[in-house]
Design a protein around this nucleic acid. Structure first.
Lengths: 189, 189
DNA sequence: CGCTAGCTATACTGATCGGTGAAGTCAACG
DNA sequence: CGTTGACTTCACCGATCAGTATAGCTAGCG
């Protein structure tokens, strides 16, 4: 039986998602076939299709889980974050940069997936939630005295830093973005 | 005879590159086969391979031409730009946003291409050149009185705005990035 | 005239793509 | 005991992938 939601995932589904995440993150989505995902997962192609139904659905599930994990990690950081709390968003992305991959998996997916693909909605929702969270945190940090465009400003710095993970030479743009965000928050206080 | 450089491109090569640019920009690189490129170009697959030798080489040529065209347009804007000149970089990207496509073609390519692909070097060179040009223009605009990290700051805003072309709803992040850059330049003067 | 460059047309290769069918194993559960 | 769910094995489908072979056409040029 196919179970994309509701019931909790079977061992085979988890192994498949783990393998998909590893492969999609590094090689991209179109470059990875279902065959190699199944092999890498130690699972048959039959099981993959019994669990997910199609490659498109697997891609969507991959993006959805990636967002959920990232979001949970962000909330955990926020629970014990020193002021200003917005910086925790940068830290969450910095921590996610440890395991390798060519840049932001959501931006990469957006560049690869065709219009109407179910995964695209997940990407848009993810970015929208991040944008909103940044705006919210800025207002909280500055006690509603934040300049109107400061949220957008920090979000752009964040996205600029994320987009360049895995492209540029040594220079760590994301860390620079965090430092600039810290400055801006201190100046606005 | 294969002519990737030196001699000027044949009509077939130009038609092929035009078609490749149209298709790669919208659908991504792996999602487009050489067959459909040739058909879209009104050219046979044989001609495509006589001109470029392989799909990888065609991808590299596509990215290279894209960079050269963008760079030429930037220099043209800079020749008659009002101060501060850095904003011309934002305008060059804003102008390139007219013809459709999912975000920045260079960031997308970086997400798709495997390690060692010749196109990756073109992407890295492009981004490095943009980064350097932004730094250079900031120093010129502010007569060498620019804060050390202002170049990086504007570059991150730029990249953040570019990365989100084609993802987000209506909101134009790139335009917001330009506005913030204008503010920062005014404040630093 | 003959040579060459740029091109067309068509047919083909082996490999891989996403996806399916059929049959069977095994453990948990009632 | 029988059923059910998760899984394996393996063969198979039509389509598409990048790339090649063979042959012929046409215009410019010496």
């Amino acid at each position: 039986m196919l179970r994309t939601q509701t019931t909790r995932p079977t061992p085979g589904a988890v192994k498949t998602l783990d393998a998909a995440e590893r492969l999609f993150s590094v090689r991209g989505i179109h470059a990875v076939g279902v065959e190699v995902i199944a092999t890498e997962a130690g699972v048959t192609k039959r099981t993959l299709y019994d669990r997910f139904g199609s490659k498109d659905a697997l891609v969507e599930a991959y993006l959805r889980r990636r967002h959920e994990q990232w979001w949970a990690q962000l909330q955990q950081r926020l629970a014990c974050a020193a002021a200003p709390a917005v910086l925790a968003v940068f830290d969450a992305y910095l921590a996610a940069s440890d395991h390798p991959g060519h840049g932001c998996p959501f931006l990469n997916a957006a560049g690869e997936l065709p219009d109407g693909h179910p995964g695209l909605q997940v990407v848009m929702d993810h970015k929208r939630q991040v944008r909103e969270e940044v705006g919210r945190l800025v207002e909280v940090d500055l006690a509603d005295a934040a300049p109107a465009e400061l949220g957008e400003h920090l979000f752009l710095l964040l996205e600029g830093g994320i987009a360049h993970r895995g492209i540029d030479t040594g220079v760590d743009h994301l860390r620079a973005a965090r430092a600039l965000a810290e400055q801006l928050m201190a100046a606005a206080q």
